[in-house]
Design a protein around this nucleic acid. Structure first.
Lengths: 344, 344
DNA sequence: TGTTAGCACTCTAAGTACCCGAGTGCTAAT
DNA sequence: ATTAGCACTCGGGTACTTAGAGTGCTAACA
């Protein structure tokens, strides 16, 4: 159990280190406003805090820096979110100023503003496209042997894919197929599309369309594989280079690599979870991120769909500020996107 | 005028420096196969080459490195492109192995392979969308007051934009509008779209559609502003971090910043020009790139459309290799994309 | 008994001195 | 014209010193 004084010292130490990036010494601390103990007392307490694992030294006679456990305790118990300065609020709200008509545009813009505001890297995940519902489906022939399939969803998202047409196919067959697909697939979520395709739709096609076999096959292939990375938006990818915490080029490379690699995204942004989460250093599953902290938060669109936001910075991240910013933004985004989506 | 021996020494010096990234000394050079002069002779020649501005020293008693003028001369007169190793050819050709159906996919893949092959950063510009010709145009209503406009071009490219509908509009009006737009705009290039829209199409709309005013306005706005950065593809953005030439974090940041900023793209990739170009160091207009060399090449799709490829590396770039690679790729890309586009 | 002043000790960072080796320019011999 | 030889230069590594900030511990103090 920590005493009041220890709590105070831990908090001030972490705050100071977050701000200065320099190990904090007892002398330095004792001079801070709000601290009325001598450096000797603080030395004793810091030694104790180190014994308990909350602080660390970079070398035997250096000042202290927070350990991961220290950050964790700070984040869990000592974080008093202060209200955001008006200027930050204005900047955040500017996302919605120019009336953007597309979810994607708004998310892109959010990523940008977030990175500007925080000086860290932001990753935003749009709502899961697979939950979207087919509004319209069309097939536009391009040449003798290629056509483009277009799927419009209720959110205004448009998926399109070029696929090849078996040679010598009757153009009217394509039209017939498009009609049947529309009849059968409008109202279905992208998620369930392939199921529906294979079940009822195939049967009906068989009855009405010649050469349905090959046509169906290439179409199905085209529609099924999703553009998976299309839904991830970055802001301030280069902000890592601004952080004094990162100087090792090798590590920076690894980190940036990991962040861009689509396959790692689920590790960074836990897709299912609600609310705000903080992962500190080695709490991150990816070893390239062991020197980073990640704050994630989810937002809602309508009742069912959710997206998520992540801010990636050094462990010595300004947790207070970022939490406030993300709280505000996730609320605003939810409100705005839901409104847009519902079409009011 | 340079003597034979000076040419030889310049060439070997540049080659060696490109390979080793270390200043080249006279002793070192004299031991190279193909060099039969003593180090003293070479010293004299190098001093002469320095006086003429082809070589530089990093400090008074160091070996020589090529100056920009040196690289320029090397590139203009001493570049003997050697045939690519079989392995590289195989890797390049692998771009077309899996039958991708979309131009965009092929270009993306090219960017990736290029960066892997060269260890530099690649930027590929797709064919100018504005030259594409409208194949089909549709409007899909989403809610009471929003619809998505979709334009399919002859190349299979799909542009889509959500736009708002004035409240209380008759849905049949939208359909009418879509029909009229289709009648009038199919066959027009995206380039000329706004002209056509404003000239004839507006008149006809006026005659047939109620509330054409607001509807037309928002639609026009939506269709006109292009997604400009949509057509640029990167490979190996992080490869800069691999180059020993770049260690200054500040410079790296500047450079990466410039490369990603869409507005700088025209400065890097000269859109109009045909064939292969090399820009060395300060020959680049952007000051952030004064330590880089850029090799660009254009490729063709059909008879009219062109795209371009850029490889960005240190001035100490492996010009020989890159030129060979780009020569091969631009040819292949032209062939393949033209084939696809013509639909054979 | 909790707090603090004092002190010896430790370690980093910065500065200085030093040498080694690779390289140069120049001169004189071939 | 070429080259061997030599004095000189300079960067980079190693070793040593010093200043300053910080620590732990002990003993005095309220």
């Amino acid at each position: 159990m920590l005493t009041e004084r220890q709590l105070l010292i831990l908090k001030v130490t972490v705050d100071d280190y977050i701000q200065s990036a320099q190990p904090v010494g007892s002398n330095q601390l004792s001079k801070k406003p709000g601290i009325s103990y001598s450096s000797a007392t603080i030395r004793n307490e810091m030694a104790e805090l180190e014994r308990m694992g909350f602080l660390e030294k970079t070398h035997t006679s250096s000042g202290r820096i927070p350990s991961e456990k220290g950050y964790r305790y700070y984040v869990d118990h000592l974080l008093t979110p202060r209200p955001l300065p008006q200027q930050d609020i204005v900047q955040l709200r500017s996302i919605f100023e120019e009336k953007l008509t597309e979810t994607e545009e708004i998310i892109k813009r959010s990523a940008m503003i977030l990175s500007e505001l925080t000086n860290y890297t932001s990753i935003l995940l749009g709502p899961d496209v697979r939950m979207h519902i087919v509004k319209k489906l069309s097939i536009v022939p391009l040449t003798e042997n290629a056509a483009v399939a277009i799927i419009v969803t209720d959110s205004g998202h448009v998926e399109n894919r070029v696929f090849s047409i078996p040679p010598g196919l009757n153009p009217s067959d394509i039209e017939k197929m498009a009609n049947i697909l529309n009849e059968r697939l409008v109202g279905v979520s992208l998620n369930n599309l392939h199921l529906r395709l294979e079940q009822e739709t195939l049967m009906i096609l068989k009855q009405h369309v010649e050469h349905y076999g090959e046509l169906f096959h290439t179409f199905r292939k085209a529609v099924l594989l999703p553009h998976e990375d299309e839904n991830v938006f970055y802001g301030g990818k280069l902000n890592i280079l601004k952080q004094p915490d990162f100087h090792d080029l090798q590590k920076i490379r690894n980190l940036m690599d990991v962040m861009e690699e689509a396959k790692h995204i689920p590790m960074i942004l836990p897709v299912g979870s609600q609310g705000l989460h903080i992962r500190i250093g080695s709490e991150n599953t990816l070893s390239a991120m062991e020197d980073c902290s990640v704050i994630t938060v989810s937002y809602d669109i309508g009742e069912e769909q959710t997206g998520s936001i992540a801010i990636i910075g050094p462990k010595r991240m300004d947790y207070k500020r970022i939490v406030s910013i993300l709280d505000l933004l996730s609320g605003d985004l939810s409100k705005e996107l839901t409104r847009m989506f519902k079409g009011t």
